[in-house]
């Protein structure tokens, strides 16, 4: 799908309100709204909190609480590409921690970090349901399985190529 993170640093209140209003009528609209905001802006801006709270008739604290509870929601934009590497048991059994070490040593990046040029964010994830193809990862929502150091290098190389 090659879905680039549509990160937009300029906060557009009108656009945010439009997204919120479109979904506010759903039962339990909080998560659908937060997902839609993050998809549009690449992260959940602090300034969106009161807008969401008002639309759903909940407190800002409850909105903040929901945002911070879930691992998915970011308070700052991610890199242009996101690699989510699985570190759960099945991938451990096939050496995923070696891949994490390799990322640190050869690519100078660790889970939880974004590269200095803003090209790549690495995140840890616990299970992608690709356990018969461990070690596995998601690159911008596309699954990759049977990873090893060489395949990881090639994939990161492709991402760099796509950027240039």
């Amino acid at each position: 799908m090659g879905q680039e993170v549509a990160a937009s640093l300029s906060f557009d209140e009108g656009r945010a309100l439009e997204i919120i209003e479109k979904l506010a009528q759903l039962e339990g609209a909080m998560l659908p709204i937060l997902h839609a905001l993050q998809e549009a802006f690449g992260y959940i801006d602090q300034r969106m909190v009161p807008l969401v709270a008002q639309a759903l008739n909940v407190s800002r604290a409850e909105t903040h609480g929901a945002i911070t509870f879930y691992h998915d929601f970011r308070d700052a934009p991610a890199g242009r590409h996101v690699l989510r590497i699985c570190r759960a048991e099945s991938c451990q059994s096939m050496g995923c921690e070696r891949l994490v070490d390799h990322l640190r040593i050869a690519h100078h990046i660790e889970p939880g970090q974004t590269s200095a040029d803003g090209a790549l964010t690495i995140e840890s994830v616990y299970c992608l349901g690709q356990c018969a193809l461990s070690p596995a990862a998601l690159i911008d929502d596309e699954p990759v399985g049977r990873l090893d150091e060489a395949r990881l290098d090639a994939l990161l190389g492709q991402l760099n190529g796509a950027r240039a």
């Binding site: 339990g28 998560l31 937060l34 997902h35 909940v58 929901a66 509870f69 879930y70 691992h71 994830v125």
Partner: peptide
Amino acid sequence: RLGAGAYICGEETSLLESLEGRRGQ
């Protein structure tokens, strides 16, 4: 409906909280 990366939401009451739009407690 899409979850948001919380393992605990596989627990049924936590899942219900999450569906209702709160922290998955």
